[in-house]
Amino acid sequence: MVGLLVAGTLLVLAGYGYGLLGEERYRYKMTVEVNTPDGVKTGYAVREISIRTPPPIPMLGEHRTGFGVRGEAVVVEISPDKILFALVSGADGQYEFGGRDVSFLFDELAPNSTDAIIKLWPVKPVTRRPKLDNPLPALVTFKDLRDPMSLTRLDANDLASAFGDGVALKEVTIQRTDAPVTDEIEKRINWLDDLERYRTDPSNPFTSTLPSGIGDLKRK
């Protein structure tokens, strides 16, 4: 009887389009502005957050919300050979940043607005969640864009050490949007599609030595 009850419940949920999970999706635009001697340089990326909520059925186990994100890093060209990337992951290295943490920021700081702009820099937003004390994306660059091993992490307070005098992070914002998810980063990084091969080919020297966070240039 219990089995029939569970099966019947799942069929009802499936009929409402939930299957085992209720899922909400929305998109947001992250914009990064950088001051340079040649003026302000800007880049943006549109990402999609998925929020999966299991139905509150005790016999199915714990009721826990899951977050996912699809999208790519923000690209800011400081000069033709110097490019800043704002990763999907957070400055603290948390890969959940682009989905979970950004969703928390929207829920807490703009719960009733679909067009509010939330500033993450230069003044960090005040939230009730300790994990959001540093709500910035991870910032990186490559000494040689052709070489994935040359990834270099950047200090948001000191971009000049990587890009030269007069270069400083001006502003980082997020805003909900209906625009399509951006898909442009492979035009900058032609080896990005090879990352899976790097990870799975035992004969490839990059298999176990890829820099931390490199997979957060793009999440599918």
Rank of each mutant, 00 (worst) to 15 (best):
G71Q: 01
V88S: 07
L10Y: 02
R197H: 12
E171T: 15
V76E: 02
G71I: 01
V172Q: 04
V172W: 10
P202Q: 05
Y198I: 07
G90C: 09
D81C: 08
N112E: 07
G90P: 02
P137H: 12
T36H: 13
R129D: 14
R146W: 04
V40Q: 06
T182V: 03
D81N: 14
E24D: 10
G22Q: 14
F104L: 05
F142R: 06
V140H: 07
R153H: 14
R199P: 02
R197Y: 10
F163Q: 04
D155E: 07
P180C: 03
G19I: 04
G213A: 10
A45N: 01
A162W: 02
T53E: 14
L136V: 05
G61T: 01
R188M: 10
G22E: 13
T207H: 10
S50I: 00
D92R: 14
R129G: 03
L195P: 13
M30D: 01
G164C: 11
P148C: 05
G22A: 15
N134W: 12
L105V: 00
V181T: 09
A179H: 09
G39A: 08
L145C: 04
D144F: 14
R25Q: 15
A179M: 08
L10C: 02
P135F: 10
R70I: 10
P54A: 14
A91W: 05
V140T: 14
L10P: 00
R219S: 04
D158P: 05
E72I: 10
L60N: 08
H63W: 11
G166K: 11
M30F: 11
M149C: 10
I49W: 06
G68S: 05
V172N: 12
V74Y: 12
L159K: 13
G61R: 05
F85G: 02
L20M: 08
D101Y: 15
G43M: 02
S50R: 08
L109G: 05
H63Y: 04
L109F: 03
G93N: 10
L139Q: 15
S103R: 07
E184K: 10
L169D: 08
A91S: 15
V126I: 06
L20W: 11
E196S: 09
V181F: 00
L159H: 06
W191T: 05
P55D: 04
K143A: 15
V75H: 05
P135Q: 09
V74P: 02
R219W: 04
K124E: 08
G39R: 11
L120N: 01
A116N: 14
I214Q: 07
A168M: 10
L217D: 03
L11G: 08
L136K: 13
Y16W: 15
R100G: 00
Y95G: 14
E108P: 00
T9R: 15
G93S: 14
G8E: 10
Y198T: 13
W121R: 03
K170Y: 02
A116M: 08
D101A: 09
D107K: 13
T207I: 07
A45M: 01
V34H: 05
F67Y: 12
A138F: 02
E108I: 00
R70N: 03
S103Y: 03
T42F: 00
R219I: 03
